[in-house]
């Protein structure tokens, strides 16, 4: 990968150095907001991510007032205050949080274009295979190497679980793009694999961003 390419991407992020997180209602209920537009909110924190962030809103349903907390720190960039006190459906976009991108995220976004993606064969839910998951739990995913033929994922489709075998260049699982149990579109990358010989290139990109991004 040449420098000009990296330059181009970096310039792009310099122009809009923000990430946006939408908060959709997880279920139905009447909504009450606890933040205002442009208000600063805190994300999850604590060594074990055990301290919840700012309370964004609550959904009252069947006698249960469920608070929803911000997952990331940033600014409330849009909010559906018109819904205050009203009954909302599930999956309604109610708040968007804007936050300055962190180095790690920029790197992740660039790497997404560099790493070998392993794409979703179908629109389905995916899970790591038991063996890979236990290795990830133990050593972290960057220490898990995969080679063609390994059973790496379980595809959950139509109430059936199908094992997915890895095909492509061998390497380590550098990035994970899916969340277990969340439906992924077909051909979306599920994981980014880094072949051993590419590691120095990737390290170079990382160093570059680390040096240039503040």
């Amino acid at each position: 990968m040449d420098d000009s390419y990296v330059n181009e991407i970096l310039a792009q992020y310099r122009a809009d150095p923000y990430g946006y997180v939408d908060s959709h209602t997880i279920h139905t209920g009447s909504i009450n907001f606890y933040v205002k537009k442009d208000e600063k909110v805190e994300g999850v924190s604590g060594e074990w991510r055990h301290i919840s962030g700012t309370k964004l809103y609550s959904l009252h349903r069947e006698g249960n007032d469920k608070p929803v907390f911000s997952r990331s720190s940033g600014i409330v960039s849009s909010i559906r205050t018109d819904l205050e006190g009203k009954f909302v459906e599930a999956g309604e976009k109610v708040i968007t949080i804007r936050y300055p991108l962190k180095k790690r995220e920029i790197i992740e976004k660039i790497l997404r274009r560099v790493l070998v993606p392993f794409k979703a064969p179908e629109r389905a839910k995916y899970f790591f295979s038991l063996d890979i998951q236990s290795r990830i739990d133990k050593f972290g995913h960057r220490s898990v190497a995969v080679k063609p033929g390994d059973e790496i994922l379980t595809m959950s489709l139509m109430k059936r679980d199908t094992p997915i075998y890895y095909q492509g260049e061998p390497g380590i699982i550098h990035s994970v793009y899916f969340q277990p149990g969340i439906t992924m579109e077909q051909d979306e990358p599920l994981i980014g694999i880094c072949p051993a010989e590419k590691l120095p290139v990737i390290q170079k990109v990382i160093n570059r961003v680390k040096a240039e991004w503040e």
Binding site: R61, E62, G63, N64, K66, G181
Partner: peptide
């Protein structure tokens, strides 16, 4: 003896539905 639901503390981790008391 109450018609309401409660959230399981593990709901985020395991996707538990609210439980009817």
């Amino acid at each position: 003896n109450e018609d309401r639901t409660v959230t399981c503390p593990n709901s985020e981790k395991y996707g538990c539905k609210d439980l009817w008391v």
